[in-house]
Design a protein around this nucleic acid. Structure first.
Length: 137
DNA sequence: CGTTTGACTACGC
DNA sequence: CGCGTAGCCAAAC
């Protein structure tokens, strides 16, 4: 019906994983920030696009557990660890982050100002046809 | 095949 | 800060 290209996960997921692989040790990103680097189909509102794809990023992370991708470095926009379907996985993510030096405050939140990732450098983004990421809070 | 469900986010109160 | 809501769309029911 619409002439917009459906952003199929088959192509979306590999891009997400490639971006997540770029997150350095000891730094964190958010679902929305990852989504903001992927160009939306023509005519689609970028902001709305990010909101939708942020969920997909979460799904891509779940599928990637155990594949060597640093999935634990992706948290939500509020700086907290999102609830996981499997009991205990949440604690594992926190443990992995703390092992990298990530500090959680009394509200279980991470300070993006301290350990937030600014995204890949311009050259890398350009080489992959991606957009500059939205800033973290 | 209609309905529910997310590892989301922004916004309002 | 916390809770509720709307938006959105592939997938699982």
């Amino acid at each position: 019906m619409d002439m917009f290209t459906p952003p199929e996960p088959e192509r979306f997921n590999p891009i997400v994983w490639e971006i997540v692989r770029q997150i350095p040790h000891g730094r964190v990103s958010s679902y929305g920030q990852i989504a903001s680097m992927i160009p939306p189909p023509p005519g689609v509102d970028p902001v709305a696009y990010i909101h939708v794809r942020a969920r997909w990023v979460g799904t891509a992370m779940r599928v990637s557990v155990g594949s060597g991708i640093p999935w634990h470095r992706v948290i939500n926009s509020q700086g907290t660890i999102s609830a996981l379907p499997q009991p205990g996985a949440r604690d594992e993510q926190r443990a992995r982050l703390e092992a990298e030096g990530i500090v959680f405050d009394t509200l279980d939140k991470v300070n993006f100002k301290v350990c937030g990732w600014a995204g890949p450098d311009a050259a890398w983004l350009d080489a992959h046809g991606l957009l500059p990421p939205k800033k973290l809070k």
